[in-house]
Amino acid sequence: MAPTDELVVGQEAFETFYRREFRGVVSLAYALSGSRAGAEDLAQEAFMAAHQRWARISAYDKPAAWVRRVVANMAISAFRRKAAEARALARIAVHRQEALPELEPEDEEFWNLVRGLPAKQSQAIALFYLEDRSVADIAQILECSPATAKVHLFRGRQNLAVKLNLETAR
């Protein structure tokens, strides 16, 4: 059966959305999971979920926030991270597709420290530095109030500064 005009419009909108947001979501997944192999799968899983609910999600003010919330939650879930890694490794074995390139040791250390923070702090830090998100955006993605997001960000930066032996954040 031929798709209706409405479906075509929806699908095209999803494709635009997917192409625009995919790399940003992979970056977030990589930063928060630390998995070179699994980051793309985590992102795909989040987009898959968005695609299945596209009629509803596309009506949101910021569908991108929804996908980032999903991937941020998945990336810090050990089960999801390992599952995505397992899938990616299996795919790499079959298709010889390479995982994301390795980061420089200094950057790897930085993101390891970010991942060592409490979950909400690490999510806030990743969104702030990776995507230049405002406190209001971070709050929307993390489903909390701006004041709470500000606290996560503040605490996260403070903890990071201590771990990096930098001047303590004020």
């Binding site: 790399r23 992979v26 970056s27 990589y30 930063a31 980051a39 994301l100 390139p101 390795e102 980061l103 420089e104 200094e106 950057d107 930085f110 993101w111 830090i125 530095y129 990776l130 930066r157 990071l160 500064a161 990096l164 930098l166 001047e167 303590t168 954040a169 004020r170």
Partner: peptide, 19 residues
């Protein structure tokens, strides 16, 4: 800390480039 911001921005840019 400006030093933290600088380090974080570099790490973020490099991670994005790798993706």
């Amino acid at each position: 800390s400006l030093e933290l911001d600088g380090r974080a921005r570099r790490a973020a840019e490099n991670l994005k480039a790798s993706v």
